[in-house]
Write a protein that binds this DNA or RNA. Structure first.
Length: 534
RNA sequence: GAGGACGUAGCUCAGUCGGUAGAGCAACGGACUUUUAAUCCGUAGGUCCUGGGUUCAAGUCCCAGCGUCCUCACCA
């Protein structure tokens, strides 16, 4: 605890801007009254609660006991409010008798409250679900009922009570004892509407998670996907490592790095832009199946598909090639879909994607011809086609021109999932060429809805060729756009002998986007980069 | 980095031709022991993003700035 926050304790109106009308004042006043009752408004440990989701599944333990002692089941309840059962009617049809249900303890955030005389209905929510509490003055007693009068939306409370069903057929905890767990001083967003302003949703992700439907689930799914990816790889004998995030040479990709500085060493450092070069050093060192799943940082533009820091998976398998990586990619994705409990046909906006394996596999040239009608081996035809699209072709390498056409005319059309294989070698400097065709690189990219999800190679392990490629600027590219950043130690590592290997990169954020039907990357990153709050 | 849109109560949003700042929810007071976006009666709540300018008069028009979003550019 800092000195500043101690000061704030004695000074109710803290430096945080919270003077929105009387709303906060009213909540602070209730906090005071809770304290006056000898209750800590910030609560304490609360053991033995049952997750609301688990409580809901215990509906079948609720029985109706007739006067002769026989127990009968309740009628089937419906989640849909339109189909609520009239339990008052049902009870009079089956009565006389009483309802009996299990004793339960729950805790959660107050999402809705409805007063009705000496009665209060409270909907609370924990991370497994939502349930209604019935709080009657007669049932919980004068003291607890007064306490309930000090509840605000957003407060965290605990309850002991019996599970039952109300007259309108809703599964409900009939409160016997209330516990105050934490006061919410800040007012929540409008109920049911929630917080829709995308800026506020990102800046105040805690509010977004707590009050907006589906947000918590989406991030829980992200966690399941990440966990599944790790599990799939572990099952296949891969080991996870943690490479350095501070690099003295930002290599392994063509991207501008963030620059930082180490004071004691007086050293300029770069945040890593890729995981590749250190993982390959580990291949040399004998880690035959190795991967890292972690953050990389690229000092570039922000868009619905780009955040400056994002999560990347890179996998390297000794004695494999890009074909073995293709099978692995498919397995990773199939397992991840199953981990989220979904079927292989996933919604994407108003469209769908069918991930039923095996995914289509098509060559780069095949697709090029299919979508442009131009023979990819005819340099003149490709060049004049690029001209007709308005691309600058002057003095540029034909493969660079071809790839611009590919990105413009083909990629967006790839609904996928489709593995695009066998790229022009000149645009893939870290890739081994085909044994029978040195112009073709053993590489694939996986596309879904025009998004590049995965990228894999048969890795280049010839140290002399690697050194040459580092030094050769790719034709038509500026120095800062080139990936030719010499890493002498990496070349030295290759000279010690890196096994022939397959290497794979998967953009985890984009994978999560696809599997959670999220059209922007900011929906799957908890705290995307924003300018500081004005 | 370029272009466009947006910024009004805690939240979600109206605001006409430049003429007294509006609603719903939330809040506050009251009624109600099976409600469920509870309902009903009443009350209060504003740095109209910020700063200039035009005007008798600016939430509204003009300029600059800040922030977000979209498109593009950058992007293995």
């Amino acid at each position: 605890m800092t000195e500043e926050s101690n000061v704030n304790e004695s000074n109710e109106a803290s430096e945080v801007q919270e003077d929105h009308g009387s709303l906060v004042a009213a909540r602070r006043e209730k906090k005071r009254q809770i304290e006056e009752r000898g209750i800590d408004p910030w609560g304490s440990r609360f053991d033995d609660r049952i997750l609301i989701g688990d409580i809901r599944s215990r509906l079948d333990e609720v029985k109706f006991q007739k006067e002769d002692g026989t127990l009968i089941d309740l009628p089937e309840l419906h989640e849909d409010p339109e189909q609520r059962i009239n339990m008052r009617q049902w009870r009079s049809d089956n009565g006389p008798g009483t309802e009996i249900g299990p004793q339960v303890r729950a805790a959660g955030r107050i999402m809705l409250q409805r007063d009705k005389g000496k009665l209060r209905f409270i909907d609370i929510q924990d991370w497994s679900g939502k349930i209604q509490l019935f709080v009657g003055q007669k049932q919980v007693g004068e003291s607890d009922f007064e306490l309930a009068g000090l509840f605000d939306l957003g407060d965290l409370i605990g309850v002991d009570g019996r599970l039952g069903v109300t007259n309108t057929g809703e599964l409900t905890i009939f409160a016997e004892k209330l516990h105050f767990l934490t006061k919410s001083i800040e007012p929540p967003p409008a109920k049911h509407v929630g917080m829709t302003d995308p800026e506020l949703r990102q800046r105040r992700r805690y509010v977004d998670l707590a009050y907006n439907d589906g947000v918590l689930d989406r991030f829980m799914n992200r966690s399941k996907i990440v966990q599944s990816v790790r599990q799939t790889l572990a099952n296949d004998g891969f080991v996870e490592i943690e490479g350095p995030t501070l690099h003295s040479i930002a290599g392994g990709a063509a991207a501008r790095p963030f620059i930082t500085h180490h004071n004691a060493l007086d050293l300029e450092l770069y945040m890593r832009i890729a995981l590749e070069l250190h993982l390959k050093r580990l291949l040399v060192g004998g880690m035959e199946r190795v991967f890292e799943l972690g953050r990389v940082y690229r000092n570039e533009g922000i868009s619905p598909k780009h955040n400056p820091e994002f999560s990347m998976l890179e996998v390297y398998q000794a004695y494999g090639d890009y074909q073995s990586m293709m099978d692995l990619t498919e397995q990773v994705i199939v397992d991840a879909i199953e981990a989220t409990g979904q079927s292989f046909v996933l919604p994407w906006g108003d469209k769908e994607v069918d991930f039923t394996p095996p995914f289509a596999r098509k060559t780069y040239n095949e697709l090029f011809e299919q979508y442009t009608g131009v023979d990819p081996s005819d340099a003149n035809a490709v060049s004049s086609y690029a001209d007709s699209l308005g691309f600058d072709t002057n003095g540029r390498h034909i493969d660079v021109i071809k790839n611009e056409v590919f990105e413009a005319k083909v990629e967006d059309e790839l609904v996928g999932p489709v593995f695009v294989t066998d790229y022009p070698a000149s645009i893939c400097p870290l890739t081994k060429r085909k044994a029978d065709d040195s112009d073709i690189a053993e590489r694939f990219e996986l596309f879904v809805h025009g998004m590049e999800i995965a990228n894999a190679y048969t890795e280049l392990n010839d140290p002399d060729l690697q050194e040459e490629l580092f030094q050769t600027q790719l034709e038509g590219l500026d120095e800062e756009d080139s990936m030719a950043k010499m890493d002498n130690d990496f070349v030295r590592a290759l000279r010690h002998g890196m096994p022939p290997a397959g290497g794979l990169g998967i953009g985890i954020d984009r994978l999560v986007m696809l599997l959670t039907n999220s059209q922007t990357i900011r929906e799957v990153i908890l705290f995307p980069l924003l300018r500081p709050e004005g």
